[in-house]
């Protein structure tokens, strides 16, 4: 475990999380959430949880993002907050 790498990744994740819930464009928010999940994947594989990391890459960054984008496509993109 390389603590400074971990630390940087975590920090970056927090930034992503805040960004995901603050941007007004929901499509952007969904993409940022995907990025968040990908960083999580990296973090987990670095923490020796390779199996979970793979799953998260597929399900968290993949399926979830697709679901979000599909839902946003059928509703509206802009958000008031």
């Amino acid at each position: 475990m390389i603590w400074d790498l971990d630390f940087a990744l975590l920090l970056f994740m927090i930034i992503c999380a805040i960004a995901a819930i603050t941007v007004r464009d929901l499509l952007h928010a969904a993409v940022i959430l995907a990025a968040y999940s990908l960083i999580m994947t990296v973090l987990w594989s670095e923490m020796n949880a390779v199996d979970v990391a793979f799953t998260e890459a597929v399900v968290g960054a993949g399926v979830t993002t697709v679901l979000f984008i599909a839902a946003i496509a059928r509703t509206e993109r802009s958000s008031s907050d």
Partner: peptide, 11 residues
């Protein structure tokens, strides 16, 4: 926003 809520849930 309801989608935002679900993003929050994911996080």
């Amino acid at each position: 926003n309801l989608v935002k809520k679900l993003i929050g849930l994911n996080i």
